[in-house]
Simulated assay, not measured.
Amino acid sequence: MEKHNSYFDKPIFRIGVEVTIENEYAEFKYFDTSFDIEFSDEYELALTTFISKLKTGLNFISFNDEFPFFKDFANELIKTLDRYGFITESSIIINEDYITGLSLWKEIDSYASSYLSNIDLPLGKLLISENVTKEIIINYAIQYYHFVKAGPKIIAAAMALADRPVVHDILQSFLMSELNHDKLLLKALKGAGIDSNKILSSVPLPETFALITSMQVLAHQEPLSFYSCLFLVEEERPLFNELLKTACERVGLSSAFYKPILDHSHINEDEDHGAITEELLRNYSKISQETRIVVFKHVHNNLENLIALEKAVIEEAVNCVKEVN
């Protein structure tokens, strides 16, 4: 069956959603959250049918066949309804009602591996080319610093929502092992001649901020999604590290720069941070299919955030060089 954005087979309004249509306006309300849209007469039948079918479960294929001109508008409206939490899945094609946390971990690990194997990561691809520059590598380290610095506060927020002692203890140990890692990155940047005060007063790129914010929101609101995304930013990447070291030497960045970055990566490996998601999720024996869908959505979004960040690191450095010249 065709899926919308890979998340829904047959979306349906959550219980409690109210829709009012009047004078070419439609208002959607779910408890304290509401938004409205404006539509023209030509879309009225399609919109009212769309809303009616969402009350029992919307079949995209049959609806799009009936109202092909409304397809793009319907897709955007589904995105908005999903973002505000107005809809859920009505027909999950899975035999069991629940899965274990370990099963969820295996699924998301497999999904992330498959996703990453089918794309060229921008920064990794650039490191092996002759086009990599000192500015790009330094910009990567600066953005890496901003993310690492935010880490302990994000983990501390997740600890407050830990629903069982063993999970709290894992997060506490994880938090302790992440403290002061930002100083390693400052040391690396100092090794490249970058003044620490300049770094401390700098702000992250919008894409770095987006990744930080995404993890912060999950830590505060969606603990299982937070646990499920941690491995994306904690797994060591030996090949990337080797490419980074070689690229640094090629562009004239000494070990005073790249060694602290590699040291941080090795700490993550020694502490087995790449296994943090599995370690947390294995403590859950019963995860609903709706939660599974939410988790997959956030894992996918943060994979896209990571790729967007790599692209932005490259673009920002290139633009800065152009401005200087």
Results as ranks from 00 to 15, higher is better:
Lys149His: 10
Asp272Pro: 00
Pro206Ala: 02
Arg292Asp: 00
Asp82Gly: 03
Ala157Glu: 13
Phe86Gly: 02
Ala112Ile: 04
Val217Ile: 14
Tyr284Met: 01
Phe174His: 13
Asn301Asp: 14
Ala160His: 11
Lys79Val: 14
Tyr98Asp: 08
Glu316Cys: 07
Leu186Gln: 08
Asn241His: 10
Asn301Thr: 02
Pro165Val: 12
Asp97Pro: 07
Glu234Lys: 07
Ile314Gly: 04
Pro152Trp: 03
Lys153Phe: 09
Lys125Val: 01
Ser196Leu: 06
Ser117Arg: 09
Leu244Ile: 01
Leu58Phe: 07
Leu253Tyr: 04
Phe13Val: 09
Phe31Gln: 13
Leu54Tyr: 07
Leu121Ser: 06
Asp97Arg: 14
Ser40Gly: 09
Arg292Asn: 02
Val251Met: 05
His4Ile: 13
Glu207His: 02
Met159Gln: 15
Tyr25Asn: 13
Glu290Val: 07
Phe209Met: 11
Leu239Val: 14
Ala210Thr: 09
Tyr25Arg: 15
Ile155Ala: 06
Asn241Glu: 12
Glu304Val: 13
Asn268Cys: 10
Pro223Cys: 07
Pro165Asn: 09
Ile287Asp: 01
Ser228Asn: 06
Arg250Val: 02
Thr277Pro: 01
Leu303Gln: 05
Leu47His: 05
Asn319Gln: 12
Glu242Gln: 15
His220Val: 11
Val294Leu: 15
Asn241Arg: 11
His168Cys: 05
Met159Tyr: 05
Val167Asn: 05
Lys134Met: 01
Leu280Val: 03
Ala275Ser: 13
Lys190Arg: 14
Asp109Ser: 14
Phe226Tyr: 11
Phe70Arg: 00
Phe60Lys: 00
Asp65Thr: 01
Ile12Ser: 05
Asn268Trp: 02
Phe39Pro: 06
Asn319Ser: 13
His220Met: 11
Leu218Tyr: 06
Ser202Glu: 09
His220Gln: 12
Glu323Lys: 12
Ser117Ala: 09
Tyr25Pro: 00
Gln216Tyr: 08
Ser202Arg: 04
Ser91Leu: 10
Leu121Arg: 15
Phe60Thr: 01
Lys10Met: 11
Lys245His: 08
Leu309Glu: 03
Ser91Val: 03
